[in-house]
Nucleic acid binder design. Structure first.
Lengths: 201, 201
DNA sequence: TGGCTGTATACTGTATACAGTGCACAGATT
DNA sequence: AATCTGTGCACTGTATACAGTATACAGCCA
């Protein structure tokens, strides 16, 4: 509902009303709200209520710094992939290219990145990557829905795959970092335009 | 209760009994259990129950790899500290040296590290560090309680402070990484001894 | 008229009651 | 004798009832 804009930024969530609307009781709804609060989508103030957190340029920039920091390390730990894995990465990349709706594209991109680092022995690190994937969705999905599929990650993905084929792990890590950092700019631009728009109205 | 060993590894938690014992109802207890599960202290299997996750050498090694990965980056982003901050770091370090019980020592060490990176503009990164501090407590606290204050971090902390005083941020980052990595070995040794002991009995 | 206090109300936090699921054990069947 | 099935119990998941807290508004006082 937050992604769909059914719940506006800053809106206060009434547990009773929302639970009625969703056809569940307050108890499981509160569990879901707690999870969303943990992911940063909501802010919960004790005894007062749950509020939809506004999208913020600075928070986004901070969140998007994390993946370039940790994901290359995960790839380094994973080591060079097998031929089968490279095949799967190529297939998934074509899936990204073919994806029509934003949700499918983002989902496929996430799958690609998870596949890339899936051999990393540090499962905690992989979980951390997944955690930040979920948290950044709040920013990626609305942008893509509004502007269409801006992110064309397929090319940088090909660069990474090429490096891996060459057996150059370090080059792949660097390309991965570049790939992840390149995602920031368009979203920041969109957020700033959005902020300006909101201020006008 | 987990830290105190009141709940053994692998033990199944009965919500009704534990809530009675604690004098609260099941609802807030379940919220707490969900948080513990999120932190990795419990494993929750739907419709079956909550289980105290066993301490595992491999999981610990994985978790302890994360902080050396992210914390130096946070320090780099924080930049060189002011004189006041250096003063506070020295004071906190003396607090670590003076700490008698393990909990105080771990708490003071955590405070020191948070103070070190507190100027990092990336608050998400700082929260991430805190998250892993909490998660590693499960391993640090029982060791310290059993063996006494093994961790003597004060010296490496002094090295970091000296580097910062010299204005050499990069050296401080490297020393910080070394400081964080040095914590792994004693805990792994203890865990392995513990595992061997458990296997015997 | 401005500020303050008391009260009513609406909401969150907690307790409890009810529903549904998994599991163990007993009995039947092959 | 071994496996399979049915039944009962114990536990988790959900709904609902109750308690406590924050807030808004009205009336009172300066």
């Amino acid at each position: 509902m937050i992604l769909d804009g059914e719940l506006a930024e800053g809106e206060r969530i009434n547990e009773v009303h929302l639970s009625r609307q969703l056809g569940v009781s307050r108890t499981p709804l509160r569990e879901a709200l707690a999870r969303l609060a943990h992911e940063g989508a909501l802010e919960t103030i004790p005894h007062i209520g749950h509020f939809v957190r506004a999208l913020s340029v600075s928070e986004f920039e901070q969140m998007y710094q994390i993946r370039p920091l940790i994901e290359p390390s995960a790839l380094r730990l994973a080591g060079l992939p097998t031929k089968e894995k490279i095949g799967r990465l190529i297939d998934l990349n074509q899936l990204i290219a073919k994806a029509e709706d934003p949700d499918a594209l983002i989902g496929a991109d996430d799958e690609w990145h998870i596949e890339l680092i899936s051999d990393c022995p540090n499962k905690v690190l992989i979980e951390l990557v997944k955690q930040f994937m979920r948290r950044t969705h709040r920013y990626e999905v609305p942008l893509m829905r509004e502007r269409g599929s801006v992110l064309s990650a397929t090319n940088t993905h090909r660069t990474i795959i090429a490096s891996l084929k060459r057996g150059d792990l370090e080059a792949a890590c660097n390309a991965l970092r570049a790939n992840l950092q390149s995602g920031v700019a368009p979203i920041v631009a969109w957020l700033k335009a959005r902020e300006a728009r909101t201020r006008k109205s």
